[in-house]
C-alpha cells in the first residue's frame, strides 16, 4: 500500500518512547505510565486486528488480558518465575481460551457477537473472583517479577521499558504483516463483503477464528506483562469496563490504521492520569470526551494526522454488522 508518510507518525511515537528515558522521563512515575501505555497498546493492537482487520467487535478482550495476568500469578503461586515458561504459558492459555470461546462466538455475528464476547468476558471475570487461592476478589500480589535466565532483569526499570518497547514495535510489525498477507486479505475481504469471499471459495470462519486466537494470545502476553508491571493481579484486570476501554483506544486511534491503537492507548493512559489528578470524579469529564470523540472524530487520531487512505463506504455497510444483501446494493 502506499506512502511511507503514513508510517511517519507511528515511527515518531515509538522513537519518542525510546528517547523518553534520556529526555528526563526516567522517574518511576514516568516509567510506570509509559509501561501501562505500551502494555495496553499491545492489547489494543491485537483488538485492532479484530475490529479493523476482521470486522469483529469484541467486548471481551480484557478476559484475554486477565488470563495472561492470572497465568503469571498462578505460576508465581506455584513457584515458577522463569520467563521462558511464564510468558509462553500466558500467551498459550489466553490463546486457548480465545480459540474455544471464539469457536462459539464466531457462529454469530453483529450485535450477537458483541454480547457473547461480553458474556464470555464476564465468565472469566467471575472465575477469577472465585479463585480463592489467588486472593479471590482481593487479588494476588506477586512475590517478584518474572525472572530472565535466573536474573531479575525485569525489575530494572530501563530494561523493562525497552523490552516493552521492543514487544510493542514487534507486535505492530507482526500484525501489520498479518493484515497485508494472504490471510489478512481474506479477513479484510470477509469484513467488507463476506458473501463475496464465500463466492470465491473462502469460508470466513477459520480465518476469523485464527485471528481471534492470535489476538487472544497477544493480549495474554500483554496481560502477563501487566502483571509484571504492577506486581499485582486482581479480577479488576478482567472487568468489562477494561474491554470497553480497549475498544475506545482502538477507535480513538482510528480503526482504519493498525497503529492507531498505539496512539489511542497512549492518549487514553495520559488522559486518564491527567484527569484523575485534576478531578475527584474524573470520569465525569472522561465519559463525555469519549462520547464526543465517537460522535465527531470518525477517523480517529490517525485520521487527523494522515488523510484517510480511501473514502470509507457508508458507515452501516462497512460496519461489522451482518450485512444484508440490501446493504450491499451499491448500484
Amino acid at each position: 500500500m502506499t506512502g511511507r508518510a503514513r508510517l511517519l507518525l507511528p515511527v515518531l511515537v515509538l522513537a519518542g518512547l525510546a528517547a523518553a528515558p534520556f529526555l528526563g522521563f526516567d522517574t518511576g512515575f514516568a516509567y510506570t505510565l509509559m509501561a501501562r501505555a505500551m502494555i495496553l497498546g499491545m492489547a489494543a493492537l491485537s483488538l485492532s486486528l479484530l475490529v479493523g482487520g476482521a470486522g469483529l467487535v469484541s467486548l471481551g478482550q480484557a478476559a484475554m488480558l486477565g488470563i495472561g495476568a492470572y497465568a503469571v500469578a498462578a505460576l508465581d503461586h506455584a513457584g515458577v518465575t522463569n520467563a521462558l515458561v511464564v510468558f509462553p504459558a500466558a500467551a498459550l492459555l489466553a490463546g486457548l481460551f480465545a480459540l474455544v470461546t471464539g469457536a462459539v462466538s464466531l457462529r454469530t455475528s453483529g450485535v450477537h457477537f458483541i454480547m457473547i464476547t461480553l458474556a464470555f468476558g464476564q465468565m472469566a471475570f467471575f472465575t477469577a473472583s472465585s479463585l480463592s487461592a489467588l486472593g479471590g476478589d482481593d487479588g494476588y500480589t506477586l512475590y517478584g517479577r518474572t525472572e530472565w535466565m535466573g536474573t531479575r532483569l525485569l525489575e530494572d526499570r530501563a530494561a523493562f521499558h525497552f523490552i516493552l518497547l521492543a514487544l510493542l514495535a514487534g507486535t505492530w510489525l507482526l500484525l501489520s504483516a498479518l493484515i497485508d498477507s494472504r490471510f489478512g486479505r481474506v479477513l479484510r475481504a470477509s469484513r467488507e463483503n463476506a458473501l463475496r469471499a464465500q463466492a470465491v471459495g473462502f469460508s470466513p470462519f477459520p480465518y476469523r477464528l485464527v485471528a481471534y486466537t492470535v489476538a487472544g494470545a497477544i493480549s495474554g502476553l500483554a496481560g502477563a506483562l501487566l502483571a509484571n508491571a504492577t506486581e499485582f493481579v486482581s479480577p479488576a484486570t478482567l472487568a468489562w469496563g477494561r474491554s470497553g476501554e480497549l475498544l475506545f483506544m482502538v477507535i480513538l486511534g482510528g480503526v482504519g490504521q493498525l497503529y492507531g491503537a498505539i496512539l489511542g492507548a497512549l492518549a487514553i493512559v495520559l488522559l486518564e492520569e491527567w484527569l484523575s489528578h485534576l478531578l475527584n470524579y474524573w470520569r465525569l469529564a472522561f465519559g463525555p470526551l469519549l462520547i464526543l470523540s465517537v460522535l465527531f472524530l470518525r477517523n480517529g487520531l490517525a485520521g487527523i494526522t494522515a488523510p484517510p487512505r480511501r473514502r470509507r463506504a457508508p458507515p452501516k455497510a462497512a460496519a461489522p454488522k451482518a450485512a444484508t444483501l440490501e446493504a450491499r446494493a451499491d448500484a
Partner: peptide, 26 residues
C-alpha cells in the same frame, strides 16, 4: 447514534455509563 454502526453505539453508550456512574458517586 442510530445511523452509526454498532461499534460507535457500544462506545458512546459506554461513555454514558462512565459519566452517569461517576455523577452518581459525586
Amino acid at each position: 447514534l442510530y445511523r452509526r454502526d454498532h461499534l460507535a453505539q457500544v462506545l458512546a453508550t459506554f461513555g454514558v455509563i462512565l459519566t452517569v456512574e461517576d455523577a452518581v458517586r459525586a
